[in-house]
Amino acid sequence: MTRQEEHEFKLAELAERSGVPARTIRLYIAKGLVPPPLRAGRDAAYGQDHLDALHRIREGQRAGLTLNRMRHELAAEPARSSSNLPEPECWWDYPIARDVRVNIRGDASGMRLKKIREVLSLLHEHLGSDDSDIIEEPMP
């Protein structure tokens, strides 16, 4: 087990630590109130950020804030939810054009990666390159 994985836990443990039922946590993730898991696929895991987000939600509710309002506030500070994620083991390097490169975390979730690739396709389309395979072959 890597040092990074020591600070990760499964959904059941996140539910136990936070006191929020697992099904409710999934709903919060779907609503954008809690960040998605650290990795997509079979190794989905959660960290301190997720625990903090759940505590913030509980405190916010007790202070009279609605989930809707908290969601809007989170949306206004997009960087925070990912800034404290553990450092990934690798980054993918996507050369978009001759003068543009984009780096993507190697552990981005499937859903997130799908959206990123859609945006990259647009970027690639607008910034122009004769190499049509450029998006398909990122360099680690």
Binding site: K10, R23, P36, P37, A40, G41, R42, D43, A44
Partner: peptide, 11 residues
Amino acid sequence: DTSGQLPATQV
């Protein structure tokens, strides 16, 4: 079946 995946919740 693939274990450990997070299904997206819809209400």
